[in-house]
């Protein structure tokens, strides 16, 4: 049994210690918003926050985590889709197929929390997630829109 704090709730999960957090979230906790894309930390589809920092959950065994660490998934980014990034994403109609978008949003939220007004170079460096549909320019624009609207206050 492992104890994990996920979206502010403590969960007991019965999983082998080397199970990646991604699969515990998806298959044991029922939070399927976090996606599998590569399993080797190369695509960002599985990005969640651990203590506020964007982390690729596919390559992180749950044995590396304790209940004192706050895990936040896309389902916990805001209670109702009202995070400034989610609003900017909606306003700019960013997603295409949408499969990569939870990871994009989580990576962007972590970036803004640490850097409320990122430059283009900051965005280039931090948002390394893969989108095959090609939403990159709208992702960039939405991050800037959210930053301009004061996403930082929300941390």
């Amino acid at each position: 049994m492992a104890r994990l704090t996920i979206n502010a709730a403590v969960r007991e999960v019965d999983a082998d210690p080397d199970t990646p957090l991604l699969w515990v979230l998806r298959e044991q906790v029922g939070l399927t918003g976090t996606k599998y894309g590569c399993g080797i930390a190369a695509c960002g589809a599985c990005t969640v926050h651990i203590d506020g920092v964007a982390t690729r959950a596919c390559a992180l065994p749950i044995s590396a985590l304790g209940p004192e660490q706050a895990i936040v998934t896309i389902e916990g980014l805001s209670p109702d889709g009202s995070h400034p990034l989610q609003q900017a994403w909606l306003a700019l109609d960013v997603p295409q197929c949408g499969y990569c978008q939870a990871g994009m949003l989580m990576a962007a939220a972590s970036l803004l929390a640490q850097n409320p007004s990122p430059t283009d170079a900051d965005i280039d460096a931090e948002i390394t997630n893969i989108c095959r549909c090609g939403t990159y320019n709208r992702v960039r624009a939405a991050i800037k829109q959210a930053a301009a609207g004061g996403a930082a206050q929300r941390g």
Binding site: T32, G33, T34, E75, L77, G81, Q86, L90, D93, G98
Partner: peptide
Amino acid sequence: LPRLDTADKLTGKQVYGTDLT
């Protein structure tokens, strides 16, 4: 017009084949 299928793609609610249960 904005797409009809955006909102659920921003919250993790959109169900893909890999998410089925």
